[in-house]
Design a protein around this nucleic acid. Structure first.
Lengths: 149, 149
DNA sequence: ACTTAGAATTAGACACAGTCTAAGCAATCC
DNA sequence: GGATTGCTTAGACTGTGTCTAATTCTAAGT
């Protein structure tokens, strides 16, 4: 997952390497995600993939994204209560989330360390640690009243 | 927000202190949240509040939760792609999320420290940092194949 | 207590993300 | 080329959350 440039061909190989039969639809969806290296919702992907002429159904987009997730080709980012974002970057990292614009930005995990996490409950195992830093533009444009610190 | 026992009366006072007119419905919803000190969804709250006889509509539950959020009486926890949980604990803290059962458990923020967070983008301000540790029971019950480490 | 204006509540329609179903298509294997 | 398997599809469906327009409540003033 560190190629500098993605083509349909090398994406097909990536899919195969992850045990996914590379169909046209899956390749297009993978291409949309990896060539942009952005955080996209199912909705946005559906629109991108069907940009010129309709090629892929809603069901396939969801099926494919869930398959990619299962095969650990992508990650999901849950920050917006109304929709899930899909992240082609599976390297450990975290996110800034701009609560005004909805924009998601990566934070390299290599730079951060968390200390003091308590013991996991008995018999439990960590699946992953997500850090979300919610940010907004600095100048407060509050309608009325004082800000309670 | 540190009373040891919540009554409808002292919750009405809490609401007033947060600039919220304490109506019957709002008090019941607050009572449901604070007396249990649990993470509840709008759905669950609607069911709890209307337990014996129907008292509160769906719209009011949503209106009220959003009002409580705005007035910083509660927090929302976004971990499940399908629904938001509301958290009566507004003290800084984080969460374990059991991805199998959906169970949410608190992690005291006082115990943890994060180092190495990069500079915020220009002109941005932190609204909050959420850490979610996704966990599951340790013994893997995978249907087929090897676990890719 | 009574009035009243503004705020809160309501039922039900609506919007939208995501899932499901049953049928159609495509690729591969004999 | 016929059959088996797996993929895709349209469209129905589910569930969360919002909106609207009408009704009811609350609190302040008299």
């Amino acid at each position: 997952m560190m190629a500098t440039h993605y083509t349909r061909d090398n994406l097909a190989a990536v899919l195969r390497a992850h045990d996914i039969t590379p169909t046209h639809q899956r390749i297009e969806i993978a291409y949309a995600l990896f060539s942009r290296a952005e955080h996209l919702s199912a909705d946005q992907l559906l629109a991108i993939v069907n940009g010129r002429h309709s090629e892929t159904s809603k069901a396939t987009v969801y099926n494919t994204l869930n398959l990619f997730l299962e095969k650990k080709l992508i990650r999901e980012v849950i920050v917006d209560p109304s929709k899930v974002f899909y992240d082609p970057n599976t390297a450990p990292h975290h996110h800034f989330y701009n609560i005004d614009t909805g924009e998601l930005t990566d934070i390299q995990a290599s730079e951060i360390a968390i200390s003091g996490l308590p013991q996991l409950p008995e018999g439990m195992v960590t699946e992953g640690v997500d850090i979300i830093v919610r940010i907004r533009s600095g100048v407060r444009a509050e309608p009325v009243g004082s800000v309670q610190s």
